[in-house]
């Protein structure tokens, strides 16, 4: 697993942008910022926190998506997955 790096996450629909530090998940930051996303397991298993990726390349670390879905980079699980690009734009 690659070392965690900081990610800039833009939420397209709400127009907000956050910095996700290496020691926090995207989900954690969104919760702390009061975005109130849907989530459950926080282990990349349940699929509830899945979001559509509009820009950027996710670094998938979940157990939900198939290889094809991982390769397409269209959706990601924000509780565990991070980014291969410095910036992600999510459909939130």
């Amino acid at each position: 697993m690659a070392e965690n790096t900081e990610i800039e996450v833009e939420l397209k629909r709400s127009g907000l942008t956050f910095l996700v530090p290496p020691d926090k998940s995207i989900l954690q930051v969104l919760i702390e910022e009061g975005i109130d996303p849907m989530y459950d397991c926080q282990r990349g298993e349940c699929g509830i926190c899945q979001v559509v990726v509009l820009e950027g390349v996710p670094d998938h670390r979940d157990h939900i998506l198939s290889d094809d879905e991982h390769a397409s980079n269209k959706v990601m699980q924000i509780c565990v997955s991070r980014a291969k690009t410095p910036r992600l734009v999510l459909d939130l």
Partner: peptide, 11 residues
């Protein structure tokens, strides 16, 4: 339906 855990097993 919202989500199925470990969905890749249904591929």
């Amino acid at each position: 339906l919202l989500a199925i855990p470990l969905r890749k097993g249904y591929e």
